[in-house]
Amino acid sequence: MLREYQEGLLLSARSFQSGLINTTYENVLENLDSGIMLFDEEGILSFINSQMYTILDMKRHALVGCTILSMLSHVQLSRAKKRRVLNIYRETIYKGKSAYEFVDEFGRYWRVSVTYGEKMNGQYLFVIKEISDYKRIEQTAYQNDNLAMLGKLSASIAHEIRNPLTSIRGFIQLLRPHLSQLGKEEYAKIILAEIDRANDIIHEFLASSKPSVPQVGIIPVSLLLREVVLLTESEALMKGCEIHLHPFAEDLNISVDVKQMKQVVINIIRNAMEAITERDDDYTGRIEIGARREGAEVRIFISDNGEGMSICTLDRLFNPFFTTKKNGTGLGLSVSDKIIRNHGGCISVSSKLNEGTSFIISLPLIQ
């Protein structure tokens, strides 16, 4: 009797301990920052944590007992989310991949990991986590590697190329009167224009390779932007664009290298002009420029109603050598980003196709 009683107590204790462990594990899974779904061997959802409900934008317990197929017809799941679930199923279960990465409609990066097979006793475990921060770090490292490579490349070849180009330009100018007599002056103009373009590319290589220390001075943002508008508004009018400079609510001072800062703003404005001219429909291009205070920073904004950019283009926008222009070098925004970072600031950009693009330059405010 005593032995049976002791065995009964031991069994009760083990059952109680097992319940505690299961509860502990469930609490851990509920509080992870990753979304988790577990399907049993029959394909029925047996567990889903709160983070996964948040990712799917659904109410608590709405999916328990569902299969993947029934999820695709669930009334609470949006069409975009259903399409995403279908893509995840196709890339992981159907194609046999253990991991799948994607970018959502808001530009956020996600990674889905799937575990199944004998080690899961026929069950399917899906884990989804946002990896936008990791992607940004990865992209920064990639940009730094490219800039280092660019510095070595440009420093070694720039002067070697410039010297013969200067000689060629001089001889073409000497031959220009003779070409004019033959009615071929247009050839000389084309050659000189292409030599000038080659020199501009070399200049951009050198500018992007030199981590020059800014020659800073304190300047009002209003004065800087007014000067930039004066320099660019005639070119904008020729391209059918209007530049609108917003009034300034207060005096905002920044400590910058004025020449470098003008280079950045003018580069972004010219990109806006090109984006506007790329649109097919007949409309008036408009470029909005202004500045405002945000805490201890000045935010300079430059927006346009041009053709806009896709998410894929935005992801690579500041990469050296990346360009969508026919005659672009892919260095303008890369150099601009480095200049702003050398001033202790940053550039952010948002864009929608056929709607336009907005750049924001954040710089420390001088009190």
Rank of each mutant, 00 (worst) to 15 (best):
V85A: 06
I276A: 06
V114L: 07
A236W: 00
H61V: 03
S46Q: 10
D304M: 01
S12L: 11
T92P: 03
S350A: 13
N49V: 01
L333F: 11
K184G: 03
V127M: 13
I161A: 02
M273H: 12
L10F: 09
Y53W: 01
G332V: 07
L125H: 09
S234I: 13
D104I: 02
I202D: 03
S348M: 09
F359K: 03
E250K: 14
A275V: 00
V28A: 13
K184A: 08
T329K: 10
H203P: 04
L331S: 04
L353A: 12
Q143R: 13
R226Y: 10
S98H: 14
Y100S: 04
K338Q: 15
E138K: 10
Y5T: 02
L223W: 02
Q143E: 14
F322D: 03
R3E: 15
P220V: 05
Y94Q: 12
I302H: 07
W110T: 08
R136P: 06
Q143W: 05
R83M: 11
I289L: 15
S348L: 08
E288H: 01
S222R: 14
E26W: 04
S208N: 08
A249S: 13
G8L: 14
G35C: 02
R60H: 08
E138Q: 15
V256D: 00
R60Y: 08
I266T: 02
G122F: 12
K325Q: 15
I339H: 03
T323V: 12
N253I: 02
D33I: 11
S336D: 11
R226H: 15
S78D: 01
L125G: 04
G356V: 06
H343C: 11
G107V: 09
Y142V: 07
E235A: 15
R60C: 02
E160T: 11
H178Y: 07
K326S: 12
E274C: 06
A272R: 07
L237K: 15
N163W: 08
S34G: 00
G170S: 14
L20Y: 11
L174D: 13
E130I: 04
I339T: 05
A155M: 05
S113A: 13
V349E: 06
T232I: 06
N327K: 14
K338L: 13
P214K: 04
S255D: 15
F106K: 14
